[in-house]
Computed example of a mutant assay.
Amino acid sequence: MRITIIAVGKVKEKYLRDAIAEYAKRLTAYCNLNVIEVMDEKTPENASSALNEQIKKKEGDRILSKIPDRAYVIALAINGSMLSSEEFAGKLEALSVQGRSEICLVIGGSLGLAPEVLERAEYKLSFSRMTFPHQLMRAILLEQVYRAFKINAHEPYHK
């Protein structure tokens, strides 16, 4: 299976880069992982809602240009479906059985995802109704992808 993660912005904190690198390394035993960063837009402190929409559109266009044509797209969205780790593992396994060997997971920037990206997504996934920094979300997502592969392989993993 090929997993592509498209994320807005660079991860600046070393501890997050280290966590991301660790889970990316662990995932090499289970899938072909590709992490793509697209440039984020500077957002002024008191930006109008119109400017925020323009920023999301620019970031969204960058995201859409990187999504592989045949990929099944899962967008991380606060209003998406919440799954347990086991349910997420089941979702990935079901996609594999259906012949969907290319999965693309999308993490938006600080303003979220453009409507065009959400429309392109076949599935919207929420990790919580809480808001997380998009840089931290990358580490959390990679950990859950790794956990899903361990669950599907019936291999032990800490709880």
Results as ranks from 00 to 15, higher is better:
residue 97 V to M: 09
residue 40 D to P: 00
residue 5 I to G: 01
residue 106 V to T: 07
residue 117 V to Q: 04
residue 139 A to E: 05
residue 133 P to V: 13
residue 29 A to V: 15
residue 127 F to L: 11
residue 61 D to W: 00
residue 65 S to C: 13
residue 106 V to Y: 04
residue 103 I to V: 15
residue 68 P to I: 09
residue 122 E to I: 07
residue 151 I to C: 07
residue 97 V to P: 02
residue 44 P to N: 05
residue 109 G to D: 00
residue 95 L to S: 03
residue 96 S to H: 12
residue 88 F to R: 04
residue 89 A to P: 00
residue 55 I to M: 02
residue 60 G to E: 02
residue 155 E to C: 06
residue 71 A to I: 09
residue 27 L to Q: 05
residue 49 S to K: 13
residue 159 K to I: 07
residue 115 P to T: 09
residue 128 S to Q: 11
residue 27 L to V: 02
residue 100 R to Q: 13
residue 123 Y to E: 05
residue 123 Y to W: 10
residue 99 G to R: 08
residue 122 E to F: 10
residue 46 N to T: 09
residue 131 T to Q: 12
residue 32 N to V: 14
residue 17 R to V: 13
residue 48 S to N: 08
residue 92 L to G: 01
residue 18 D to W: 10
residue 54 Q to R: 15
residue 45 E to M: 08
residue 122 E to W: 08
residue 63 I to F: 04
residue 54 Q to L: 06
residue 5 I to N: 01
residue 95 L to G: 01
residue 80 G to A: 09
residue 152 N to Y: 06
residue 36 I to V: 13
residue 126 S to A: 15
residue 134 H to Y: 09
residue 118 L to K: 05
residue 62 R to C: 04
residue 80 G to S: 12
residue 70 R to C: 12
residue 45 E to H: 12
residue 146 Y to Q: 03
residue 75 A to L: 05
residue 27 L to F: 02
residue 2 R to T: 14
residue 60 G to V: 05
residue 93 E to F: 10
residue 119 E to P: 05
residue 115 P to E: 10
residue 81 S to P: 09
residue 29 A to N: 15
residue 60 G to N: 04
residue 34 N to E: 12
residue 92 L to I: 11
residue 35 V to K: 00
residue 35 V to Q: 04
residue 58 K to H: 10
residue 105 L to V: 15
residue 91 K to F: 09
residue 56 K to T: 05
residue 11 V to Q: 01
residue 20 I to R: 04
residue 157 Y to W: 09
residue 52 N to Q: 13
residue 27 L to T: 03
residue 123 Y to M: 08
residue 56 K to M: 03
residue 53 E to M: 06
residue 35 V to M: 06
residue 118 L to H: 04
residue 77 A to P: 01
residue 125 L to D: 05
residue 74 I to A: 02
residue 114 A to G: 00
residue 130 M to H: 08
residue 42 K to H: 11
residue 101 S to K: 15
residue 94 A to Q: 14
residue 119 E to V: 03
residue 29 A to Y: 15
residue 14 K to Y: 10
residue 140 I to V: 15
residue 87 E to G: 08
residue 131 T to A: 09
residue 20 I to V: 11
residue 157 Y to R: 12
residue 81 S to C: 13
residue 10 K to F: 07
residue 61 D to L: 12
residue 48 S to P: 01
residue 143 E to F: 03
residue 32 N to A: 15
residue 28 T to D: 13
residue 88 F to E: 00
residue 3 I to M: 06
residue 40 D to G: 14
residue 80 G to H: 12
residue 150 K to R: 14
residue 7 A to T: 10
residue 22 E to K: 14
residue 61 D to N: 15
residue 88 F to V: 01
residue 123 Y to L: 05
residue 68 P to E: 12
residue 133 P to C: 14
residue 115 P to V: 06
residue 93 E to V: 08
residue 63 I to Y: 01
residue 8 V to F: 00
residue 72 Y to C: 07
residue 88 F to M: 09
residue 98 Q to P: 04
residue 9 G to D: 13
residue 51 L to V: 08
residue 114 A to D: 15
residue 11 V to I: 12
residue 78 I to A: 06
residue 76 L to T: 04
residue 5 I to K: 02
residue 60 G to P: 02
residue 2 R to Y: 11
